[in-house]
Every structure is written in C-alpha cells, then in structure tokens.
C-alpha cells in the first residue's frame, strides 16, 4: 500500500486488495440485508425444500443468489493474488460491516460483545494488512 513494493503488473494484482478490503464486505452486507428481507417475508414457513422454493421466487431471494455468486467470483480473484491466511482473516471485516448495517439500517441494538468483537477484528485486520506488502507470490 505504499511505494516499497513492485508496482502491480496486471489488472488482477492491481484490484485484488481493493476487492478484498471494499468489495467483499460490501457484497456481504448486501447479502445479509437481502437475507434479512427474505427471513422477514418467510416468517412462519418451516425450513425445507418448500422454504427454498418460496425464497427463490422472492426478488430478495434472487438477489441473495446473485450476490453470493458475485462474492464467489471476487473471492477467487482475491485468492489468486493473496495468501489464504491473510485474505480469510481480512474477510472478517464483513462482520463489522454487517453489524454497522444492522445498527444503522435496521436499528437493531448493538451490545458490548459486538463492539468488542468488532474492535478486535479491525485491530487484527490492520495488523495483518499493514504487513502484507510482499505476499503476492513471486512466481
């Protein structure tokens, strides 16, 4: 993230980090918001094949499938460039974003455990990310 590393050589190398840090958390928030709408719409329907078919008929259910596919595509691009151990831990940022979204969009209460957990994730991710300059495989 500064001038110490070699400049990114390919499109994928250039975009792997922004995809991991910004696109994946954003897609996860979108997915959870869609899931919340699906859950609210299907309250009382027993979980099973019928539940899945009903969910897939809802626009929010289709959004869930689309967002999950996009998430997978983005994840595979990230994995081509970044170590799994770093990328997977950094992907936990999505938990922090989902908590922020549930607090701001759905006005759900946020407890001390969520605040402590979010702080630990942000701190941990910064420790990993701040040191991840040379993790592109040097093949």
């Amino acid at each position: 993230m500064d001038g110490k590393t070699n400049p990114p050589r390919t499109f994928r190398q250039k975009w792997a980090a922004p995809l991991l840090w910004i696109a994946l958390p954003a897609l996860s928030v979108g997915y959870q918001v869609a899931a919340k709408h699906v859950a609210l719409a299907l309250t009382g329907v027993p979980v099973g094949v019928d539940w899945v078919l009903k969910a897939l008929r809802l626009p929010w259910g289709q959004a869930m499938v689309g967002l999950e596919l996009m998430n997978f595509a983005v994840w595979m691009v990230v994995l081509a460039e970044i170590k799994l151990s770093s990328a997977f831990s950094i992907s936990a940022l999505s938990y922090v974003m989902v908590i922020l979204a549930s607090w701001t969009v759905f006005h759900e209460p946020v407890g001390m455990l969520e605040i402590f957990g979010s702080a630990a994730i942000v701190g941990g991710v910064l420790l990993i990310g701040g040191e991840s300059k040379s993790e592109t495989p040097s093949k």
């Binding site: 151990s85 936990a92 957990g117 630990a120 994730i121 942000v122 420790l127 990993i128």
Partner: peptide, 23 residues
C-alpha cells in the same frame, strides 16, 4: 509474520465474540 499471526488470532477472537453475541 508474528505481527500478522497476532492479527489473525485477534480476528478469530473478535469473530468468536460476535458469534457469542448471537448476531
């Protein structure tokens, strides 16, 4: 690196706590 291991451990603790909160 050791610093990154500490970071990964912190993330694991944080995610566990959020799970405990029953998100």
């Amino acid at each position: 690196r050791p610093k990154q291991m500490l970071g990964a451990a912190l993330v694991a603790v944080g995610v566990f706590c959020i799970g405990l909160a029953g998100i």
